[in-house]
Simulated assay, not measured.
Amino acid sequence: MSNDSQAWFDSQNKENKAMLRQWMKNENISLVQVNGQRKYGGPPPGWVGGAPTYGSEVYIRNLPQEIYEDKIIPLLQSAGKLYEFRLMMTFSGLNRGFAYARFTAIHHANLAVYWFNGYEIQPGYKLKVCKSIEKSELQLDAIPGFLDKDTLTRVMCGITADLERLSLFASPKVDGMNLAVIKYRSHTAAAMARKSLCEGTQLLCGCPLTVEWLSYSNKRYLNFGKFLLPHSCYPRSWTLLFK
Rank of each mutant, 00 (worst) to 15 (best):
I182G: 05
R102L: 04
E69L: 05
A109H: 02
Y125T: 08
T104D: 06
I72P: 04
S136M: 11
A112Y: 03
L76R: 09
K131P: 07
K226T: 15
N117C: 08
P45E: 14
G225A: 09
L63A: 01
L229Y: 14
Y184I: 07
N35V: 06
W23E: 04
A18T: 13
S215F: 05
Y234F: 08
S5W: 15
G206F: 05
M1A: 11
L179I: 14
N13G: 05
E69Q: 07
K25S: 13
T188Q: 11
A79F: 06
P230H: 05
K131M: 08
A180N: 07
F103I: 02
E137A: 05
E164Q: 15
L127Q: 00
Y119P: 00
G200I: 12
C198Q: 14
P230G: 09
L209F: 15
C157P: 01
Q6M: 10
G118W: 07
R154D: 15
L222C: 08
Q122N: 04
D148C: 11
W238Y: 14
A161Q: 14
L111F: 08
E66P: 02
Q37V: 00
C233H: 13
G225P: 05
R61K: 14
C233R: 12
Q6Y: 12
H107G: 02
A191G: 06
C233E: 15
C130S: 13
D175N: 06
H187S: 09
M19V: 01
D4T: 06
C157D: 12
G80N: 02
L152V: 03
G124D: 06
D175M: 10
R154Q: 15
L138Q: 04
H108Q: 09
K149Q: 13
P123V: 11
F91Q: 11
G97N: 01
R185G: 05
A51R: 04
Q33E: 11
G145P: 00
H187I: 02
F9H: 11
S56F: 04
A7P: 01
E57D: 07
N16E: 15
A101G: 03
P208K: 08
C233M: 12
F146I: 03
P64Q: 06
F146T: 06
T160C: 15
R220Y: 06
L228A: 13
G42I: 05
F146P: 04
P123R: 07
V155E: 08
F227P: 02
T201W: 08
Y40P: 00
